[in-house]
């Protein structure tokens, strides 16, 4: 067993893989809400990925990766026994853990994996945890069992109604509050528009909202400032001040535009990669 080695690889759906990786120092220091930066190859990007779970005794960390661009495609083609080239972490500020009473933990798509450690930690210190999991369709709804294990109540919703309730996480949250739940705080991770609208709804419902932001990052240590976000009208660095922020005053529209900065280049990279690797990796 060597550092950065993939001990377990599990396919969660057609685009999402789970990796259990040997990385003792990170496993020892990790807290809910933190992330690592992964690199797969020489010349490769530094990609921030949320720490989903960790086991200090076994010296392992768990990450869940969705193939969305060249780098994540390449990560997800690594096999058990392979090693990531670099893993740096744990990075970012851990989510402050306290007893709020009742909390909502809301995950969308692969964001479910990212809220899992927060739900687990909130539950462990005595919160009543209501988890709301959303996905486009049944096959994309991951970690339901694990979320149920750390939640007092778990609600699943899909856009197409193929599993659980038909509709958005916002519908489920509204219904929950209408049924009489007094929710003090809510933690949401998912696509930016989903976080934007869920945060807005939470404010309307009297729930203190928190959202975990995913801007473009390079070093992840506060050195480059590429991950600038606007919160309460101030510039904050998501890598060190976040990634979880009080969501009332996050400028989500700015974040959407900033994360789209390299859309064209990302497309070029994927096309070139697919052309070069079509035969070898069988992506299609």
């Amino acid at each position: 067993m060597q550092e950065n080695e993939i001990l377990v690889k599990e396919q969660l759906n057609e685009v999402v893989m789970k990796f259990v990786i040997y990385k003792p120092l990170v496993a020892r220091a990790a807290r809910a809400g933190q992330f690592v930066i992964l690199r797969g190859r020489d010349g490769g990007e530094r990609v921030p990925v949320t720490l989903v779970d960790w086991d200090e005794k076994a010296g392992t960390i768990t990450v869940i990766i969705q193939s969305i661009g060249k780098s994540t495609f390449m990560f997800n083609s690594l096999k058990q026994g392979d090693c990531f080239l670099n893993i740096l972490g744990p990075l970012g500020t851990a989510v402050e853990m306290k007893n709020y009473g009742t909390v909502a933990v809301i995950g969308g798509g692969v964001g479910i994996a990212e809220v899992y450690p927060i739900a687990k930690a909130l539950k462990a210190i005595g919160n009543k945890v209501i988890s709301i999991l959303g996905a486009r369709t049944k096959s994309l709804l991951i970690l339901e069992e694990q979320m149920r294990a750390v939640s007092d109540e778990t609600i699943c919703c899909t856009d197409d109604g193929s599993y659980g309730q038909k509709g958005m996480v916002t519908d489920a949250l509204k219904a929950c509050v209408n049924s009489g739940e007094k929710i003090a705080a809510g933690f949401v991770i998912g696509p930016i528009p989903m976080m934007k609208f869920t945060s807005k709804l939470m404010v309307e419902l009297g729930i203190e909202p928190y959202a975990s932001l995913n801007p473009i990052m390079l070093d992840g240590t506060g050195m480059c400032g590429g991950c600038r976000v606007s919160v309460e009208g101030k510039v904050r660095f998501a890598c060190v001040d976040g990634p979880m922020f009080p969501a009332r005053t996050i400028d989500f529209d700015e974040l959407i535009r900033r994360t789209g900065e390299y859309k064209l280049q990302e497309k070029t990279a994927v096309e070139k990669f697919e052309k070069d690797h079509q035969c070898k990796l069988g992506l299609h």
Binding site: G43, G44, E45, R46, K70, S71, L218, Y262, Q265, E266, T268, A269, K272
Partner: peptide, 12 residues
């Protein structure tokens, strides 16, 4: 990150 070699390197 050697972005000037993109797309041979991965950082744009």
């Amino acid at each position: 990150m050697q972005a000037y070699k993109f797309p041979d390197t991965d950082t744009p």
